[in-house]
Structures are given as C-alpha cells and as structure tokens.
Amino acid sequence: MTRIIVLLNLKAGKSVADYERWAETTDLPTVNGLKSVSNFEVLRTAGLLGGGTAPYQYVEIIDVSDMDLFGEETSTEAMGKVAAEFQDWADPIFIMTEKLGS
C-alpha cells in the first residue's frame, strides 16, 4: 500500500464553507469510489501540538492499494474534472510515503 499525504491551503478568496461542501459532496465520494483507493480522508487542521497555527489548513490522506490502477483511474475524464476543480481551490503538495518496519 502507498499512502499519499496532501497538504493544502485554500487560494486567496476561496470560501472555507464552499470548499468543505465541495470536499464532502464531490471529492470524498469520488476518490473513495476508486477501486484502487482503500481509504481517503480530508482533515481540517486544528493547530499545532503545544500551541500555534498549523502551516496548512487541510491534510488529505489517500491510501492506495494499487498504484498502477490508481494511475489508470485518475486519468479518466471524470477524475480530470475533479482534479481541475481541486486545483482551482488550492495549490496542494502531494507526498508519497512508504511504511517502515512492515
């Protein structure tokens, strides 16, 4: 399994309420509907442990069970539309991870 961590802040002028509505009605069900994805979560940051503001407003966690299939599924027209909408909300950073000690 590959876990992709996405860090993002909304672009200037973007509404938190509108983004969260879009995430709940479009992003979450679409990505969780992919056969290659075992789990997808969008998390709103609440601050830093010990105090302070987090450097990112949101963290997404995508657990991918099959990267080849993920590549195929994310290349579809439907996913292209969702990806374009996502890019309109934010300039995300995508981090690929591998688990240690498996």
Score class of each variant (00 low, 15 high):
71 G>R: 13
67 M>S: 13
68 D>H: 09
65 S>G: 12
87 Q>Y: 09
54 A>K: 03
59 V>E: 05
58 Y>T: 03
76 T>A: 04
14 K>E: 11
42 V>Y: 08
77 E>M: 12
97 T>Q: 03
46 A>H: 08
94 F>G: 10
65 S>Y: 05
93 I>T: 10
19 Y>A: 03
31 V>H: 01
27 D>S: 04
31 V>T: 11
77 E>Y: 04
16 V>R: 14
88 D>W: 02
6 V>I: 14
2 T>W: 10
41 E>W: 06
37 V>A: 07
54 A>L: 06
93 I>N: 06
37 V>K: 01
95 I>N: 09
90 A>W: 01
46 A>M: 09
59 V>F: 13
98 E>A: 15
23 A>C: 04
18 D>M: 08
30 T>V: 08
39 N>R: 15
11 K>A: 09
97 T>H: 04
30 T>P: 05
41 E>P: 00
94 F>N: 13
79 M>H: 11
99 K>I: 05
25 T>L: 08
57 Q>E: 12
57 Q>G: 10
5 I>L: 12
87 Q>W: 04
33 G>I: 07
20 E>G: 02
3 R>T: 15
30 T>K: 07
35 K>Y: 02
90 A>G: 09
40 F>W: 11
64 V>C: 02
40 F>L: 05
26 T>Q: 07
76 T>Y: 10
9 N>E: 01
57 Q>F: 03
